[in-house]
Amino acid sequence: MTSAAEVVTERPGHPYTAAPLAAVPQPGRPLGDTGLLPADPRSPPSGGRFRTRCPLADARCSAETPARREVAPGRTAACHRRLIS
C-alpha cells in the first residue's frame, strides 16, 4: 500500500509542492537560490496565492485566481496547469 506521503512526493499535484522536493540536494546538481519570493500572509498576492513562489507562474497566474479542482482521486489543487495525468 502506498502512503499519502509517497503519493505527494512521487506525483506532486501543484508546483508549490514540487518546489521543496526540487530543493533537496542531488549529486551533480548545483545548489543555489531559486529566486522565488515569499508572500506576506497578511497581504496575499493577486491571482494564484502561491504565484510569487511558483517556478511555473505566468501572466494568467497574476490575473486570475485558479479554481480548486481534482487532480487525482481524492486530491485537489488550485492551479491553472494540468499537473497530474
Rank of each mutant, 00 (worst) to 15 (best):
M1Y: 12
M1W: 06
T2H: 12
T2N: 11
S3A: 05
E6W: 05
E6Y: 06
E6I: 03
V7E: 05
V8E: 04
T9G: 01
E10V: 02
P12L: 15
P15T: 15
P15M: 04
Y16D: 00
T17Y: 09
T17G: 00
A18D: 02
A18I: 08
A18P: 05
A18L: 05
A19M: 13
A19T: 10
P20N: 15
P20G: 05
L21I: 11
A22K: 02
A23C: 09
A23S: 09
V24C: 06
Q26H: 05
G28Y: 01
P30E: 04
L31P: 14
T34D: 08
T34W: 09
L36W: 02
L37F: 13
A39G: 02
A39L: 06
A39C: 12
D40P: 00
D40E: 00
P41R: 03
P41T: 10
R42I: 14
R42Y: 14
R42K: 11
S43H: 09
P45N: 02
P45K: 01
S46C: 04
G47W: 04
R49M: 15
R49H: 13
F50C: 03
T52G: 07
T52N: 04
R53E: 11
P55V: 08
L56D: 10
D58E: 11
A59P: 03
A59L: 02
A59V: 11
R60Q: 11
R60K: 15
R60Y: 12
C61Y: 00
C61D: 01
S62N: 02
S62W: 01
S62M: 06
E64W: 04
T65W: 07
T65F: 15
R68T: 11
R69T: 14
E70F: 14
E70G: 04
V71I: 10
A72T: 07
G74L: 08
R75C: 03
T76L: 09
A77R: 04
A78G: 01
H80S: 08
H80A: 06
I84M: 04
S85K: 07
